[in-house]
Nucleic acid binder design. Structure first.
Lengths: 154, 154
DNA sequence: TAATTGTTGCAACTCTGTTGCATTATTGAT
DNA sequence: ATCAATAATGCAACAGAGTTGCAACAATTA
């Protein structure tokens, strides 16, 4: 879609990143996707259009994460998934089917709301709910603070 | 601890699983742990006491999961972690430090409660909250139902 | 004791993700 | 538009997680 392409250009421009064909292609994939994508998904999708190395995709996604453009989702299958991180696409729960492996997005409700929603739907069968929070633990946070102070003194 | 050992024996007995030294060792590790353990953690812990192959640990943990004895936690680092799944240790959020990588357990509150708790604590610095729900999606659930019906007819 | 079944260890493999380095593309100044 | 400086890409090689097949071993039963 031309609209997604323009959106991709604008997003890169806005983040101050250079607009290479590879970055535009990866970003367009994420914008067009209805579910989070793995590196493999992106690689296969783009294989027909252009030749992009696996490594390049990893590096681009890492860059997007740093700039708050994309979000990473861990899955127990050992593969990580990526989705757009924007105001239109706020943080939301994900559903991982243990049978087909597909990762889909759920409505951005609170945890308790989501839980109620799922249990009230006949369609889904829930095995397990996982809440993972990432950041800095107390020890590392203090260590970081200390480092900053020392740097100021030097 | 002798108590943990007895607990391990009881748990295996209760699940109808044979009480092999390897299973007892892995189960004891999980019972003694204060944080979820990776296969590597377990392997290193048990290396001094007994020689257990990596593969055996994977198989035992897979078995424990099937019997509801253990629970698996995905992490974005590519490594999965395991913890006891019991009434004394209900499902709870986990905190993953992006600096030291340690995975720790949080109080088993609801998501909104946890979020408030974290943001009120000066110690933690939260980057990202992930809610992953696993089970069967609508398509796979219907497919499974259909299979069961067909099996009955045959 | 022999046969059957279940469990483990070993080797080899797949897949995800990373790193170093040479090559190529992008950007900004002329 | 051209060219140099810089940034980004592709390739090869690697490390680690997790899996599979198979032979050896242990436990159980007849």
């Amino acid at each position: 879609m031309n609209k997604k392409y323009k959106n991709a250009l604008f997003t890169l421009q806005n983040a101050g990143l250079s607009k290479t064909p590879q970055r535009i292609a990866v970003l367009t994939s994420l914008l067009e996707a209805t579910t989070p994508l793995s590196v493999r998904d992106i690689s296969q999708t783009l294989a027909a259009k252009a030749r992009i190395d696996r490594v390049t995709i990893y590096r681009i996604l890492s860059l997007f994460k740093q700039h708050g453009i994309a979000r990473e989702i861990a899955s127990s299958g050992g593969t990580n998934y990526f989705e757009m991180a924007s105001l239109e696409n706020p943080v939301h729960p994900h559903f991982n089917c243990r049978n087909c492996g597909e990762l889909s997005c759920m409505e951005p409700l609170t945890f308790s709301q989501s839980r109620q929603l799922i249990s009230s739907q006949e369609d889904y069968s829930v095995d397990h709910i996982e809440i993972n929070i990432s950041g800095l633990c107390a020890v590392c946070r203090n260590a970081t603070k200390l480092q900053k102070q020392q740097n100021k003194q030097v």
